[in-house]
Design a protein around this nucleic acid. Structure first.
Lengths: 246, 246
DNA sequence: GAGTGGTCTAGACCACGAC
DNA sequence: TCGTGGTCTAGACCACTCT
């Protein structure tokens, strides 16, 4: 077949458009996280393109983290990140290095309040909207290690208000998915250095003005919306992170 | 053509083998850093494979950072990283954020000594081999900001011994290439938190025990050998780094 | 216009996973 | 054995860059 039809199209390549179209279908919930999407041959047929073209489109979505390929089984919608990844910034004493340890979680306080200007902007809320704020202490071997402040936009996370926090899981992201239908798909962490105030120090069983690392996280759902703002503080002497260039 | 010949081959895919073969030719210096390699059609012909296959091979090397494609111009051997990237860990006052500023460099001391066991292992040297150690102070707007200890394996960097350090450039990696033929292709940085000792504090015009961030870097050449060990210290309050997950 | 990488096709076969 | 993604082919046309 000749290729002449291509040039009438606006800006993108064909596989780029296909990727956008498939992404939209995933966002609409046509296939739930963890489910298989149709086989490549079927997709190619239904879109009327060659196999290689649909494969390029899928590759874009795999790169983007929306899809995962499994040879011999199929192509699956990503389930979302587990959230335990905060541990990649810290190495605490008496904890195996490579292990995927999850600190025990305890909610110290919950609070409803109006969103700040910055939060309105991040969550794309209108002024005066409400948010749910959590204070959370995470411990390893009964030793407090991380102190977190978590802010969630309120229409979306309404199911968590007046819920029994003692029954919450150690990992919040899977719980977001179960109770609120929110799948965390991407996070961005900004690291800086600070010192603990008196209250924070007491919670972490350290002295006031103790050096700490501050992790400011934005978490995004599968549609790319920011749905969580989190501030994490941990002992600076436990900080250890590795970054590669090129 | 039938595909029957493929299965007689050992373990890899054809494009995987091609990538290895091309990588080897690059390492042998057949094309210098910054030069073009032959066009895809030529490579496909000379290796007797389809265009798509050679393109997959090249894609692997592009992903690996060894090659760079430029539409309409050709495929080029990577020139190497510039080394200014240490600034991605720090934000100093009075310096534009996004700008690619390069701190001014001054070598405080050079020293020849025997390699430690750890250095022998990293550099793949035999015991008793020598290394060149540099102490280096980097400044922005005449204000000291970073203090570095740099260790280089000695047969390789012999050209730097007894060289006039005042004539050295602010960026070391391009100089490694010019004077020693060493192209830095990849770096791995390990971040942790520490405090300055008296000497370090004096150099950086800070007080002793001032909190600092410690960056321990391994730099690798195009063949994947570790050719530089570097320890960088900077004011922890200037530390700012962003990391993404998924 | 000539040369380069980028996109696309239509079809074949290979390797993995589950039944 | 069947269905899945992974590899490979041979050829076409498109889009960018330089002269």
């Amino acid at each position: 077949m000749t290729q002449l039809l291509t040039k009438t199209l606006p800006g993108q390549s064909r596989y780029g458009k296909l990727a956008l179209a498939l992404r939209e279908r995933i966002l609409q919930g046509e296939w739930a996280p963890g489910e298989v999407i149709p086989a490549e041959t079927l997709l190619a047929q239904s879109y009327g393109v060659a196999l290689g073209t649909i494969r390029q489109a899928l590759s874009l979505l795999v790169e983007d983290g929306v899809l995962q390929r499994r040879h011999g089984k199929g192509t699956f919608v990503t389930k979302g990140v587990d959230g335990a990844s905060m541990m990649r910034f810290f190495r605490f004493r008496g904890v195996d290095d490579g292990a995927n340890v999850t600190p025990h979680s305890r909610i110290l306080a919950t609070r409803l309040r109006n969103a700040s200007a910055q939060e309105c902007h991040a969550f794309e809320l209108s002024q005066g909207a409400q948010v749910l704020q959590l204070e959370r202490l995470r411990s390893l071997n009964s030793e407090p290690c991380l102190l977190e402040t978590i802010v969630l936009p309120l229409p979306l996370f309404g199911a968590l208000v007046e819920s029994d926090t003692d029954a919450w899981d150690d990992l919040l992201y899977p719980m977001y998915q179960e109770r609120c239908g929110v799948v965390i798909q991407k996070t961005q962490d900004s690291l800086s250095f600070s010192q603990l105030n008196v209250t924070q120090a007491k919670r972490l069983k350290l002295s006031a003005a103790h050096p700490c690392v501050l992790v400011e996280r934005q978490a995004f759902d599968i549609a790319g919306r920011c749905v969580e703002l989190r501030t994490t503080r941990g002992d600076a002497f436990s900080f250890k992170y590795t970054a590669q260039v090129q």
